[in-house]
Nucleic acid binder design. Structure first.
Lengths: 136, 136
DNA sequence: GCTTGACTTGGAGTTAACTCCAGAGAGTAA
DNA sequence: TTACTCTCTGGAGTTAACTCCAAGTCAAGC
């Protein structure tokens, strides 16, 4: 598979694909005689995996570590697992934070709805204290 | 309240607090005669709010818009609400993505557990296909 | 009056993660 | 052969969001 096809398939620019390979986010892709990249199915799976993980913000550094460990073979199974467990933990924390913000936004939106509904009656009422001061 | 106290209280560097104000992430803080910032409770609430929103990745640009709209008064209530609704929507999307990744990581971790448990029996078994090829 | 420490401003520097570019080579089409 | 298209590499440039720095001000303590 040529880089143009992989780029199309995963909606990643060719530059990004080359960058991923250069920094070690995916293992080195084989070249044809002419030096042109020829992506295998396996390569594509790596691309998809990395795109997915980057998509939710796993750090490039960490993913590079994972790929490096992977290439070192079975001795690193434990370490790789621990790396994944750590990332799983981080994700959980971030999702909990987001859940909190989600609820906070909902509260704020509700209050805006109320204010908009009665906006003409209560002129001079400061939105500052009403909206911002709740749940300091 | 002095900048040092606010910095301490919210665990944001003084530079970050000044930066937030400079770019409009929080409204302008009043100064004493000597020119030194004197944060009110209201200012602190803004700092907390912005820290919280930035913490889950809402873009600086968007939050600046929100603050700007806020300062324009009641005419922007509707717009502000829409902005919050949009961010709420985005958060939901991101959380759904993260949920998927969470499950994917769990699957991967399970497979690593299996492999580690039987690592001595199955020598020569390639982790590449076993771990990476599932659920292409 | 002088030193010290916290604060000010404007502007430059940093970091992460791409993104773009110049110059060159290979393969195909006329 | 010439032109065109796709790709290559190494390196420079960009963007977002801080982070650091130099030079200066001010209030308090000695």
């Amino acid at each position: 598979m040529l880089i143009a096809e992989v780029s199309e398939k995963f909606e990643l620019s060719q530059d990004t694909l080359r960058y991923y390979e250069r920094v070690g986010l995916i293992p080195r892709v084989n070249r044809k005689n002419s030096g042109i990249r020829d992506y295998t199915e396996e390569d594509c799976r790596w691309v998809e995996f990395i795109k997915c993980m980057r998509g939710v913000g796993l750090p490039v550094e960490t993913l590079i570590d994972y790929v490096r460990l992977f290439q070192q073979g079975d001795e690193t199974l434990e370490t790789r697992k621990e790396l994944l467990v750590e990332q799983h933990k981080e994700l959980l924390i971030r999702m909990a934070d987001m859940q909190k913000v989600l609820e906070r936004l909902e509260g704020k939106i509700d209050r805006y709805d109320q204010m908009i509904g009665t906006a003409h009656q209560i002129t001079g009422f400061s939105p500052v204290n009403f909206v911002e001061s709740k749940g300091k």
